[in-house]
Amino acid sequence: NKEHILAQKEVLTPIEYEHYVKHLFDIGEITKELYIELSS
C-alpha cells in the first residue's frame, strides 16, 4: 500500500526509490496515477 511504499523512501536512496516505484508500476502493483504521485 501507499504507506508501505512511502516508508521505503526513508530507507532507499532517491535513485533506488525511483527504480522501486517504477518496478511496482511495471508489474501492475500500482496505478499510473499513484506512480506519478509517488515519484513526484
Score class of each variant (00 low, 15 high):
E33W: 04
S39P: 00
Y20W: 13
K2S: 07
L34S: 07
K32W: 13
I15T: 15
I15M: 15
L12F: 07
F25I: 02
S39F: 06
K9C: 04
Y20S: 01
I30K: 00
I27F: 08
N1E: 08
K9H: 05
D26K: 07
H19N: 15
T31S: 08
H4G: 10
K9T: 03
H23Y: 14
E16Y: 03
K22E: 10
E18M: 12
G28I: 01
E16V: 03
G28A: 05
Y35V: 03
I36F: 09
T13Q: 07
I27H: 13
A7V: 06
S40M: 14
D26I: 11
P14V: 09
N1K: 14
I36L: 15
E33Q: 10
E3V: 08
L24D: 00
E3A: 12
S39W: 05
Y35S: 02
L12W: 04
G28W: 01
I15Q: 12
T31F: 03
K32S: 11
T13G: 11
Q8D: 02
V11C: 08
V21W: 02
S39T: 14
S40I: 12
H4L: 11
H4N: 15
K32D: 10
D26Y: 09
V11A: 15
A7C: 03
K2R: 15
L12G: 02
S40E: 12
I15K: 08
H23D: 09
L24Q: 04
T13R: 07
E29Q: 10
E33R: 04
N1L: 13
N1C: 09
V21M: 07
K32M: 15
I15S: 14
I36P: 00
E29D: 10
L38E: 01
T31E: 09
L34Q: 13
S39N: 13
K2D: 05
F25Q: 03
F25P: 00
D26L: 12
L12Q: 06
L34R: 04
N1S: 15
H4V: 15
L12V: 04
F25K: 05
I27P: 00
I27L: 13
E10T: 13
H19F: 10
N1G: 07
K2L: 14
Y17T: 01
S40A: 14
E29N: 10
I36Y: 14
A7N: 10
D26N: 08
S39H: 04
E29P: 00
K2N: 07
K22R: 15
E16Q: 15
F25W: 13
Y17S: 01
L24C: 02
I36S: 12
L6A: 08
L34G: 04
I27N: 13
E33S: 09
E29L: 15
L38R: 00
L6Y: 04
S40R: 10
S39I: 06
P14R: 11
K22H: 07
E3S: 13
S39L: 15
P14S: 12
E3L: 09
I15Y: 08
I36R: 07
I36H: 15
P14H: 09
E37C: 04
E33D: 11
E33F: 04
Y17Q: 01
D26F: 05
F25E: 02
V21F: 02
Y20A: 03
Y17F: 14
T13E: 08
I30R: 00
E29G: 09
L6F: 05
L12N: 02
A7R: 13
G28C: 05
I30F: 01
V11L: 09
E16P: 01
K2V: 13
Y35T: 01
E10P: 07
Q8A: 11
L6R: 08
H4E: 04
H23T: 10
V11E: 09
H19E: 14
E16G: 06
D26P: 00
I27A: 15
Y17A: 01
S40W: 10
I30L: 07
S40F: 12
Y20D: 00
K32V: 11
K22S: 09
D26Q: 08
K9L: 08
Y35G: 00
K9P: 01
E37K: 04
H23F: 10
E18S: 07
L6G: 04
H23A: 13
L34C: 10
N1V: 06
I36E: 06
A7I: 09
